[in-house]
Design a binder for these strands. Sequence first.
DNA 1: ATTATTGTGTATATTCATTATATACACTTT
DNA 2: AAAGTGTATATAATGAATATACACAATAAT
Lengths: 127, 127
Amino acid sequence: MDIIISNASGVPIYEQIEEQIKSMILSGDLAAGDALPSMRLLAKELRISVITTKRAYEDLERDGFIESVVGKGSFVKGINSDLMKESMLFAIEECLEKAADKAILGKVSLSEMQEMLSIIYEEKKNG
Amino acid sequence: MDIIISNASGVPIYEQIEEQIKSMILSGDLAAGDALPSMRLLAKELRISVITTKRAYEDLERDGFIESVVGKGSFVKGINSDLMKESMLFAIEECLEKAADKAILGKVSLSEMQEMLSIIYEEKKNG
DNA sequence: ATTATTGTGTATATTCATTATATACACTTT
DNA sequence: AAAGTGTATATAATGAATATACACAATAAT
């Protein structure tokens, strides 16, 4: 399981895990029925506490993406892919809203923002 | 002093105050030498603690935007307007980066984001 | 088959950092 | 003296992350 956590980002670890697992489900890297790494194993790999992985899996279960059964493990559920994309778009929207708020306060134009976004996006995608 | 704080946003109150005062300086609503409302008065207007306004003014002073002198009050300093804009752009950049991260994970294209951003920006600016 | 072991998820109590607070203090002006 | 400034100390409330012990299931050893 290729999950990368960054302490510098300010994003809570459990959220980073959630986002990346959702992404793998969306992209097909994880299919319905697939087993996730156990909370303990993932915690060991990432050098974090079991409780943090549990927090992530707990949220994913609450939101209907996975299912955990004691003694057996955690598994990907059948997902409505459209709903999934909806949830992703919503998270993106929240970030863009914050950026727009700051931009308007700071008298930064839309085209300036578009330019910035374009550079950032391509940078992240390629470099 | 027209400062609006929103508890729903998740942004700390002191940060909201800082952003809005910076914005007023940048736009010219506040000029060098102008007196800010006293910490106590602003706290009273916003129905928050003096300590929170102090925290905001403290940060603004640390960053060179204002100056506080005991017994007298807090005042806007002479500002390098370019540096100011730099600092605003940096904050916007951070938000856009988070959005871009999520977009790439979620297989959301750049043009989709541009479209979202455009709608959000215009909505906030006009509506 | 029974039992011990190992691997699952779960629950409790705790630590740490951040945000926000009440209250009392020190200084300046009037 | 009084009323207005900014300042400092001690405290509460929340959220992120943790260590440790608990409960259940599958498996290997006997």
